[in-house]
Design a protein around this nucleic acid. Structure first.
Lengths: 232, 232
DNA sequence: ACTGCCGCTTGATAAATGTCAAGCCTTGAG
DNA sequence: CTCAAGGCTTGACATTTATCAAGCGGCAGT
């Protein structure tokens, strides 16, 4: 790995607190690699030989079953994905595919499991990442079980709106079929959900969406921090 | 806490590996308490002041929203619930209610967060529990997004069948409306799902269910270890 | 510029799921 | 024993969501 990359990795929250000697041990066996868009990094069912960390870009986590496929989440910098599989020395439960050209840090699982036992600060960083991931999944389940498709879309748009600084226009970060899959519906149903939201001030033009009646939309969506706030 | 209880707690996987001195520090501030059935132990949105561990009995974890309610999981001995909230010093994302008379060990969150930094073995135990919980939630999401209600019920029955030692008869562990909520459907829909499974050898008599054509049921349910095996 | 592909939308229809209401059966209290 | 309450089931119906098919429109490659 190049010196400047090493320095950048060392600055990541996951590695900033660990002991220097352990960082020295971890890195030589690791790779920081660039991937183009659309590369499958991991496949569900395979043993978790490496911990993957998104340093740059974005990775879609998705799963298969019953002849269907569904997106579960999108991992952004800087977060580890499939950390739980690595720590349990188990197989991946999800597949991972780059959504954009990305830089991925790959660390041998074995090293992670060794050092986590010896470095409390590193263990603490791993615990934080795991806890964050767990809570994200709980929110995902609540979103799926308590809301209809239209409600999920409305809340998703409101979240984009918040993240964009409450501008009137938000830009959908992915293709619509990807958003449909993330929200647990078919692309056709997403189109119809957008149509349903028109009276609530949602105007779609390709990847751009205007939210002209945010208050009305909120009354419909009933956002709650216990589902929609990524920082809680 | 009584001496024999202390001993039992010390033997739990979560505490068996930690240093004796840290165990001594943890316990005095903790309670091991009996609760009757139906007691609300924690409420979503409240700050996570205590880590709760089910020592005996069972606890339903459920969530509210949009005027609806849904069961997310059931915690059995010996597992911690809401561990992530404690570690992040955040609010609970789920409510917890005893399903049976239960013994619950309550440990101040503050102590957990302190000792996890000092005791690598304890941190490791926490990491294991967190990783297990995370993977459970991933499987829950896959179950919800990839399967229909009938398929979820079929797989649930097959799991009970496995757990019971592949006997022809399985006993539903909860009231049907609770199972319906866990599986993400209404009680009415659960009744109809049972009826749909009749041609696949599923005969219901109150809480007892006969599985007379397990192979047929499996062909319908298509169980996969990546969703249905709790130990993977 | 043409053209084929692909993502998206729309319509028609089907399937899945939820809602409301009624009735059955068990259970527990009086 | 009687009876009320609650859990469960069933029927009728409404709503939500998926499926299938067609067509639109932008975009990349020839």
């Amino acid at each position: 790995m190049r010196p400047e990359d090493l320095q950048a990795v060392r600055a990541l929250p996951l590695f900033a607190t660990m002991k220097a000697e352990n960082f020295e041990r971890l890195m030589p066996a690791s790779f920081l690699q660039r991937f183009p868009r659309g590369v499958v990094l991991i496949r569900e069912g395979e043993p978790a030989d490496f911990l993957h960390i998104v340093v740059e870009g974005a990775v879609e986590l998705h799963a298969h079953g019953m002849g269907r496929e569904s997106s579960i989440a999108v991992a952004y910098p800087v977060s580890a994905f499939i950390l739980a599989a690595v720590l349990k020395d188990a197989v991946y439960l999800m597949s991972g595919r780059t959504l954009e050209p990305s830089r991925i840090l790959m660390i041998p699982s074995e090293s992670i499991r060794t050092i986590i036992l010896e470095d409390p600060e590193f263990a603490q960083a791993m615990v934080n990442e795991l806890a964050r991931s767990f809570r994200f999944m709980v929110k995902t389940v609540k979103n799926l079980k308590l809301r209809t498709a239209v409600e999920r879309l409305a809340n998703y748009l409101l979240r984009l709106h918040e993240d964009a600084g409450r501008t009137t226009q938000v830009i959908l970060p992915f293709e619509k079929r990807m958003i449909a899959s993330l929200l647990g519906m078919t692309p056709e149903n997403l189109s119809r959900a957008f149509a349903t939201l028109k009276p609530y001030g949602v105007e779609v033009d390709g990847p751009a969406v205007l939210l002209t009646k945010v208050d009305d939309l909120k009354r419909l969506a009933k956002p709650t921090s216990l589902i929609d706030d990524p920082n809680i």
